[in-house]
């Protein structure tokens, strides 16, 4: 690679440049279009951030969408007779206190969504001097 090759423009750039020189020799079109695009881009950002600012500061309130409540639905669901029978059988069968405690703990964790451990994702080990 010599100086000449490293400093050459690509063929595509040369072709586009020649095309632009023919179409817009004084640069008026490219200037007008480019300035407009820069302004449009920043005006869009202006509107976006104004809206986000108002939204986060509470000046604009988003309409509340009523989502079906999970708790209500589950409360309304009643077990079928077959399920009732299965639960009764399970309760009647002889199990140790530890099994009931484990089932109780598992259900408690599940209901409180604490099944998974919260991990810090920090895997660095600090060496002690």
């Amino acid at each position: 690679m010599n100086t000449f090759v490293l400093l050459q423009v690509s063929e595509q750039v040369a072709a586009k440049s020649a095309d632009m020189a023919a179409k817009d020799p004084h640069g008026i079109i490219i200037t007008a279009v480019s300035v407009s695009v820069v302004f449009i881009a920043l005006i869009i950002l202006y509107f976006a951030y104004t809206f986000i600012g108002k939204l986060t500061s509470g000046q604009i309130k988003m309409p509340k969408i009523k989502l079906p409540s999970f708790k209500k639905k589950t409360a309304e669901v009643h077990p079928t007779p077959e399920e009732m029978a299965a639960i009764a059988l399970a309760l009647e069968s002889k199990r140790s206190g530890e099994v009931y405690a484990a089932i109780g703990l598992a259900l408690h964790q599940h209901m409180n969504e604490k099944v998974h451990d919260n991990e810090s994702y920090v895997i660095t080990i600090k060496r002690r001097n």
């Binding site: 640069g27 480019s34 300035v35 820069v38 881009a41 950002l45 202006y46 509107f47 951030y49 104004t50």
Partner: peptide, 16 residues
């Protein structure tokens, strides 16, 4: 955000 437009105006220097 309105001050963003000043940043756009200054870019006219590039095209000038």
């Amino acid at each position: 955000p309105r001050l963003m437009l000043i940043g756009a105006a200054a870019q006219i220097g590039i095209f000038g």
